[in-house]
């Protein structure tokens, strides 16, 4: 269970203070796939980065199984981070390491013996279907393959939580779909809790059981994904749905005109 309570954060900029998060409250249950959707600048990235404290919140609490992450010292934080995997929009793989060694990285950090590392990495390679690419370097992979390595690396240490920071936003629709499939699959197989932020409605619709909508640093509605879609209350979600359904309504006629 992850409980975020009264989380706030401001940034100081040359033009004054900007509120990134305002009194955010969220409850995410174990094994869930929880989506946070919002437009650019809504604060979703700040929110997810507070969970492993890549950003330091100004106030509020983030409890993971009753352990408050926000008060941990450096060493304890690093220990906790080993159980929170993260994947990124830009993948952030190490160019100096092969696929195998990239996935081994978090295990090396954790000082796992070499033999166990080998066993674990091969296990995970199989899970993400990249066994034949294990000696390749990241530059030799496609975007989708890179994100698979990113996912494998995030899972290597058997984390309880996987944070996804716009993991599919740099991928084409087909690859996005295969990555979403993979995330769904690992959620089922490994019972891992997935928290993701996105600006793609399809990601939410396809993957997330529960969703929160964020607007100007505030959670303005949250709940079961289906219910939100049936009865969107917030401006943001309405806009998202309108854009998509607008396309759907328009496209057959447009195609007709072209023909």
């Amino acid at each position: 269970m992850i409980t975020i309570s009264n989380l706030s954060k401001e940034y100081n900029t040359p033009y004054g203070k900007i509120t990134a998060l305002k009194n955010v409250n969220l409850k995410i249950s174990r094994g869930d796939i929880y989506g946070i959707i919002g437009f650019s600048g809504a604060g979703k990235s700040t929110l997810i980065r507070c969970i492993n404290r890549l950003e330091e919140p100004d106030s509020g609490k983030i409890e993971i199984d009753n352990l408050d992450i926000t008060v941990l010292d450096k060493n304890k934080l690093n220990e906790s981070r080993k159980k929170i995997g993260m994947i990124f929009q830009q993948f952030n793989l190490l160019d100096s390491r092969t696929v195998f060694d990239n996935i081994a990285f978090p295990l090396e950090i954790d000082k796992v013996p070499q033999r166990e590392i080998k066993k674990r990495v091969e296990e995970i390679l199989e899970l993400v279907e990249l066994t034949d690419k294990k000696d390749a370097y990241p530059s030799q992979l496609s975007g989708g393959q890179k994100q698979r390595v990113g996912i494998a690396r995030a899972l290597a240490n058997k984390p309880d939580i996987l944070l996804s920071d716009e993991a599919t936003s740099a991928l084409d629709p087909l690859t996005t779909f295969s990555i979403l499939e993979l995330l769904k699959d690992i959620n089922k197989k490994l019972k891992i809790t997935i928290i993701l932020i996105t600006h793609e409605l399809d990601v939410i619709r396809y993957l997330c059981r529960n969703t929160a909508v964020i607007e100007q640093g505030e959670i303005i509605e949250s709940g079961k994904t289906e219910e939100l879609f049936l009865n969107p209350k917030s401006e943001t979600l309405r806009k998202f749905i309108e854009i998509i359904s607008g396309f759907e309504r328009k496209s057959p006629r447009d195609i007709g005109e072209v023909i």
């Binding site: 492993n52 890549l54 450096k74 934080l77 690093n78 220990e79 906790s80 981070r81 080993k82 929170i84 995997g85 993260m86 990124f88 830009q90 952030n92 793989l93 190490l94 990285f105 978090p106 950090i109 954790d110 690396r153 240490n157 944070l163």
Partner: peptide, 17 residues
């Protein structure tokens, strides 16, 4: 790139690592 350093942070690596 900062992103790579950040990813290592997220994995719990310390400064030396």
């Amino acid at each position: 790139e900062r992103g790579k350093i950040e990813a290592a942070h997220a994995m719990g690596a310390n400064e030396w690592q």
